[in-house]
Simulated assay, not measured.
Amino acid sequence: RPVASSGPAKSANAIAGESSSGAVSAVSANDRVQLTGDAVNLQQFEKALAAVPRTDAGKVERLRAAVDNGSYQPNPAAIAAKLARFEYAMA
């Protein structure tokens, strides 16, 4: 028969009053971690993103002004080429 719960489940450490964030003492020398391909790709993406320079507020403001006054003339071919390179790099 089902057991009624009186609230959220607690770990044995929490019930005993021990911290669950402490170091693990029973680690075998044979223990290892293997990352999936997606995890490795995510790590590489995070490294690449960290290398991207911060936003240049002055450049953003100049572009915003150019769009507002109608002087900004985007180059559709250059935009398409950069999008294609981006998509190719992500595949």
Rank of each mutant, 00 (worst) to 15 (best):
V60R: 09
L35G: 02
L49C: 08
T55D: 13
Y72W: 10
N13D: 13
T55R: 15
Y88K: 15
A91M: 09
V24D: 10
I79V: 14
A26R: 12
A48M: 11
A16E: 09
K82I: 09
G17T: 00
A14T: 06
S28G: 05
L35E: 02
D68I: 02
Y88N: 13
S6I: 07
F45A: 13
A50S: 15
A9L: 12
A84R: 08
G17K: 00
P2C: 02
S5R: 15
N41T: 05
A77C: 07
G7W: 10
V24K: 09
Q73N: 13
L35D: 04
K47T: 12
Y88D: 15
N75G: 04
K10Q: 14
Y88Q: 14
A66N: 08
S21F: 12
G22D: 13
T36H: 05
K47L: 09
P8Q: 08
K10F: 00
N69K: 10
N13P: 02
I15Q: 03
K47P: 03
A65C: 01
V3T: 12
P53A: 15
L83R: 14
K47A: 13
Q73W: 04
R62C: 00
P74G: 06
R1I: 10
P2G: 08
E87H: 12
Q34C: 00
A65Y: 02
A89T: 05
R54K: 15
R62W: 03
V27D: 00
R32S: 07
A12K: 01
E46W: 09
A4R: 14
S28K: 12
N75A: 06
Q44C: 01
G70D: 02
P74Y: 11
I79T: 14
E87C: 01
A66D: 07
V3L: 14
N30F: 06
G22T: 06
P2S: 10
A77Q: 15
K59V: 07
S20D: 10
L49Y: 13
S6R: 11
S71P: 01
G7E: 07
A91P: 01
V52E: 11
G17W: 02
